Lab assay of single mutants.
Amino acid sequence: KVLVLALYDYQEKSPREVTMKKGDILTLLNSTNKDWWKVEVNGRQGFVPAAYVKVL
């Protein structure tokens, strides 16, 4: 399983997205889209901007 680090806070803007806080460790589920990556955080799955996270 691939983990990513949240570099910035992100507030979800649609039901398909998830909120994350800077420093959160998320599970990367899909990174085929260069702009939006699907992650799991706190038991929820959704998209975050790829530029806001870094693969650990």
Rank of each mutant, 00 (worst) to 15 (best):
K1T: 13
K1Q: 15
K1R: 09
K1L: 15
V2I: 14
V2T: 15
V2F: 11
V2P: 13
V2S: 09
L3H: 12
L3E: 09
L3G: 03
L3F: 12
L3N: 07
V4P: 00
V4W: 04
V4S: 04
V4F: 05
V4T: 03
V4E: 00
V4M: 07
L5I: 14
L5G: 03
L5Q: 14
L5S: 06
L5E: 15
L5P: 00
A6D: 00
A6Q: 01
A6N: 01
A6H: 01
L7D: 02
L7Y: 04
L7W: 04
L7C: 06
Y8N: 11
Y8A: 13
Y8R: 11
Y8T: 10
Y8G: 06
Y8S: 10
Y8W: 15
Y8P: 00
D9G: 06
D9W: 03
D9A: 07
D9H: 06
D9Y: 04
Y10L: 01
Y10G: 00
Y10S: 01
Y10P: 00
Y10D: 00
Y10C: 01
Q11W: 15
Q11N: 13
Q11K: 12
Q11A: 15
Q11T: 15
Q11M: 14
Q11V: 14
E12S: 12
E12R: 09
E12H: 10
E12N: 11
E12Q: 14
E12C: 09
E12D: 05
E12A: 14
E12M: 11
E12P: 14
E12K: 14
K13D: 07
K13L: 15
K13S: 13
K13E: 13
K13H: 14
K13Y: 05
K13N: 11
K13R: 15
K13C: 13
K13G: 11
K13P: 05
S14K: 06
S14Y: 07
S14N: 13
S14V: 05
S14E: 07
S14L: 08
P15R: 11
P15F: 09
P15W: 11
P15N: 12
R16G: 15
R16W: 15
R16N: 15
R16I: 15
R16S: 15
E17G: 10
E17T: 09
E17A: 06
V18E: 01
V18P: 01
V18R: 02
V18L: 14
T19A: 07
T19K: 04
T19M: 04
T19W: 04
T19G: 11
M20Y: 01
M20A: 02
M20P: 00
M20I: 14
M20C: 06
M20W: 01
M20L: 10
K21I: 09
K21Q: 11
K21V: 12
K21T: 12
K21H: 12
K21P: 01
K22H: 07
K22F: 06
K22S: 10
K22R: 11
K22I: 07
K22P: 03
K22Y: 05
K22M: 11
K22D: 03
G23D: 07
G23C: 07
G23R: 02
G23S: 03
D24E: 15
D24F: 04
D24P: 00
D24C: 05
D24I: 04
D24N: 06
D24Q: 12
I25K: 06
I25M: 08
I25G: 02
L26Y: 11
L26H: 03
L26C: 07
L26R: 01
L26N: 02
L26T: 01
L26A: 13
L26F: 06
T27V: 15
T27S: 10
T27I: 13
T27Q: 14
T27K: 08
T27Y: 11
L28M: 05
L28C: 05
L28V: 13
L28Q: 01
L28N: 01
L28W: 02
L28A: 02
L29I: 12
L29W: 06
L29Y: 04
L29S: 03
L29V: 15
L29E: 04
L29F: 04
L29R: 04
N30W: 07
N30I: 10
N30D: 12
N30P: 03
N30S: 14
N30A: 12
S31A: 13
S31Q: 09
S31V: 09
S31W: 11
S31G: 14
S31D: 14
S31Y: 10
T32K: 13
T32P: 04
T32D: 15
T32W: 11
T32E: 15
T32V: 10
T32Y: 13
T32S: 12
T32H: 15
T32M: 11
N33V: 06
N33R: 08
N33D: 15
N33W: 08
N33L: 11
N33S: 10
K34W: 07
K34V: 11
K34H: 13
K34Q: 09
K34D: 12
K34I: 11
K34L: 09
K34N: 13
D35S: 10
D35I: 11
D35Y: 12
D35H: 15
D35V: 10
D35Q: 11
W36M: 07
W36H: 04
W36R: 03
W36K: 03
W36E: 05
W36A: 03
W36T: 02
W37C: 04
W37M: 05
W37R: 02
W37I: 06
W37D: 01
W37G: 00
W37N: 02
W37V: 09
W37Y: 12
W37P: 02
K38C: 11
K38D: 05
K38W: 14
K38I: 14
K38G: 06
K38N: 08
K38E: 15
K38Y: 10
K38H: 14
K38Q: 15
V39T: 01
V39R: 00
V39Y: 00
V39I: 08
V39N: 00
E40Q: 10
E40V: 07
E40M: 08
E40W: 05
E40F: 06
V41W: 08
V41S: 15
V41M: 15
V41H: 09
V41I: 15
V41C: 08
N42K: 12
N42H: 13
N42D: 14
N42L: 13
N42Q: 09
N42G: 13
N42S: 12
G43Q: 09
G43H: 09
G43C: 11
G43P: 02
G43I: 05
G43A: 08
R44A: 09
R44I: 10
R44W: 04
R44M: 09
R44C: 06
R44G: 05
R44Y: 07
R44L: 09
Q45S: 13
Q45H: 11
Q45A: 13
Q45M: 14
G46H: 02
G46K: 02
G46I: 04
F47K: 03
F47G: 01
F47W: 14
F47V: 08
F47E: 05
V48K: 00
V48D: 00
V48E: 00
V48N: 00
V48S: 01
V48T: 02
V48Q: 00
V48G: 00
V48R: 00
V48Y: 01
P49K: 04
P49V: 02
P49C: 02
P49Q: 02
P49L: 03
P49E: 02
A50T: 06
A50Q: 07
A50Y: 02
A50N: 03
A50I: 03
A50V: 07
A50G: 06
A51I: 11
A51L: 12
A51V: 10
A51Y: 08
Y52L: 14
Y52Q: 06
Y52K: 08
Y52P: 00
Y52W: 08
Y52H: 09
Y52C: 07
Y52S: 10
V53R: 00
V53C: 10
V53F: 05
V53W: 01
V53T: 05
V53Q: 00
K54D: 09
K54E: 13
K54N: 10
V55E: 09
V55W: 06
V55D: 05
V55N: 06
L56V: 10
L56Q: 08
L56G: 03
L56P: 04
L56I: 13
L56Y: 11
L56W: 08
L56E: 05
L56T: 06
L56R: 03
